[in-house]
């Protein structure tokens, strides 16, 4: 009887542990195969100057945040103020405007403020495919050598910025 109770207790505890961890995971967060590899090649026109091309070369030489966004993406609005704050702190942010309308994208940046140093205009979504984008917003950290170091899917928040993004950026800038 005691034995049986003990076994039930152990099984119950294991299940609680399994669900505790399992249900806490975010099923939308997939490990990106890009992390640890050089930034994928892409070439898209600049949002503000269609004559100019934005490519992976624009991500090198400085630690850079690549932020995938669109004016139609509601959770992008939620993280926008964080991007502006990061910009104020001196973080270099490059935008990838994903499957958007040029005028709508302009309007979005005009009313909400522009945290980006450069914005690439990826109308077809092909550059997004090169970057393995499956949901906006997505944020990558690229080091000076142009290697992808980190990816976050979904809107940035205080916790992610404080615990993951800023420490990583500081570390990469020091090295």
């Amino acid at each position: 009887m005691v034995m049986r109770l003990a076994i039930s207790g152990v099984v119950f505890a294991l299940l609680v542990g399994l669900f505790w961890v399992g249900l806490g995971l975010n099923p939308r967060e997939l490990p990106s195969p890009l992390v640890g590899r050089p930034a994928p090649a892409f070439q898209i026109p600049d949002l503000f100057d269609p004559e100019r091309q934005v490519s992976q070369a624009d991500l090198r030489n400085r630690v850079t945040l690549l932020n995938v966004w669109a004016s139609w993406c509601t959770s992008c609005r939620a993280e926008h103020r964080h991007l502006l704050a990061l910009r104020r702190q001196g973080v270099r942010i490059v935008g990838l405007n994903y499957k958007d309308d040029r005028a709508a994208a302009f309007g979005y940046l005009e009313s909400g403020g522009n945290p980006y140093e450069i914005v690439g205009f990826d109308q077809s979504g092909n550059a997004g495919i090169e970057w393995g984008v499956y949901g906006t917003p997505e944020t990558f950290v690229i080091d000076r050598q142009g290697v992808v170091r980190y990816k976050h899917v979904g809107p940035l928040n205080e916790v992610v910025i404080r615990d993951e993004l800023l420490p990583l950026i500081t570390e990469l800038e020091r090295s």
Binding site: L30, P31, P33, L34, P40, I129, E130, W131, G132, Y134
Partner: peptide, 8 residues
């Protein structure tokens, strides 16, 4: 596909 989106 795998090199962009992973084994998923």
């Amino acid at each position: 596909m795998v090199s962009r989106y992973g084994d998923f």
